[in-house]
Simulated assay, not measured.
Amino acid sequence: MQIAIASGKGGVGKSSVTASLVYLLKDTYKLIAIDADADAPNLDLLFNVEKWEEEKELTGAKIAKINTETCIQCGICAERCPYDCINFIDGDYVVNELTCEGCGVCRLVCPVKGVITLEEVRSGIIRKTTTKYNFPLISAQLDVGRPNSGKLVTEEKEWAKKIMKEQNLEHMIVDSAAGIGCQVIASLGGADAVILIAEPTPASLSDVKRVYKVVQHFREPAYLIINKADLNPGFRRLHEFAEEEDIPIIGEIPYDRAVPKSMTMLQPVNEAFPQSKASKALKEIAKIVEEEILR
């Protein structure tokens, strides 16, 4: 199975919940974990990954290049660039590679053929390792200013499928990025189930509703975990939302200082503080995941 873990909003504890669930399920099932947040990957930190066994570069992004020797310096490209990434520097028109989106407008409006070209550059890297817990982890890192984060996640999942076949693994657990952008869509596409993480605040409720619409588009079953559930006990709108949409709430995790402490120790909270309040709640959630999703 492919299980995607999403939140819509950042900072609600999605990665820490993912790390604990993988940690708790690893001895029962043959798993592979994917960090699908190519902008800000952090799952490797929670598993204390010190080195990567293999890395692959992903190309496909394009940026404009101006041949300064044949450029007639008319400035039309700078005027028409929708991203304002062409500047006149030291007597030449130069493209800012960090802000160029490779749209090709500059090449289209340039009066001299061949002066401006679109060149393919690296979008980022995909990397794989075997954690100290003996399950594979795939992560990606998008280069600064580059597009194609969704493509990076798709490539991660394709690599994971290949490893699953080679190693006879059973389940793929995907830690999605925040928001509802390309990365999240790529994470949710093809999933057999989605676990939504939210905290009892209006902002988190609003964002989890948005990502749930994406889940509905893919017609995937959804489950909800309420994290830091006791921080705002009077806030019942998450429960109302789950009831209205017929989304099972598979657990509520109390706020626990053990969670940030475990992060500084580079360990899942269930390993660092197995008797903490959060660890006990996560252990119960893992049982429900086994009974209701994986079997």
Rank of each mutant, 00 (worst) to 15 (best):
L188D: 07
A193R: 12
C74R: 12
I180Q: 03
R80M: 14
F235R: 03
L169E: 02
A64M: 05
D37F: 09
C85M: 03
Y29P: 00
P268K: 12
A4S: 15
Y29N: 01
T130L: 14
F235H: 03
V12N: 11
V174E: 05
P147I: 09
K277F: 04
V259E: 06
L45I: 15
N67E: 12
G91A: 08
R122S: 15
Q167H: 12
K261I: 13
G10Q: 02
K277T: 00
E166Q: 15
A40R: 04
A186Q: 06
F273M: 11
D44F: 14
K283F: 13
V121D: 00
V211Y: 08
V194H: 05
D37H: 08
K283P: 00
G10S: 07
V112T: 15
P202G: 04
A33D: 04
G75L: 11
L58P: 01
P268M: 11
V153H: 05
P111S: 09
R295C: 03
W159S: 08
A64C: 04
I247S: 05
S279P: 04
P233G: 02
S262Q: 11
T131F: 10
F273E: 11
A36V: 00
A193S: 15
N148P: 00
G104R: 10
L137W: 10
L238H: 04
K280P: 02
Y212H: 15
I126F: 04
L98W: 14
A281G: 03
L238W: 05
D230P: 08
I195Q: 05
G181V: 03
C106S: 10
L152P: 01
S262A: 15
N148K: 15
M1P: 08
P202D: 09
K62E: 14
Y83D: 09
I249Y: 06
N87P: 00
D90W: 09
V215P: 01
C71D: 08
A36E: 00
L24Y: 13
G114N: 06
V112A: 07
A140G: 07
N270P: 06
A286M: 01
E170I: 02
R146D: 01
K209V: 01
I86S: 08
T131H: 10
K132F: 13
M172W: 07
A160M: 03
A177V: 07
L238I: 10
C110S: 12
V12I: 15
S187G: 05
W52T: 13
Y93G: 03
I285Q: 06
A38Q: 04
I116V: 13
I76S: 13
R236C: 00
Q2S: 03
D44V: 00
P136W: 11
P111E: 06
D39T: 05
V215R: 07
C77W: 13
K62N: 08
T18D: 00
E292G: 00
K151W: 07
S16G: 01
E69N: 15
E79T: 09
V22P: 02
A78T: 03
I163W: 09
G181P: 01
I116Y: 04
I32C: 05
P200I: 02
D230E: 09
G124A: 10
L118D: 04
F135G: 06
I63N: 08
V22W: 11
A281S: 15
D175M: 08
C81D: 11
A160K: 06
F241I: 05
L294I: 07
W159A: 11
E244N: 13
A36P: 00
V214K: 09
G60T: 06
L205I: 03
Q141H: 14
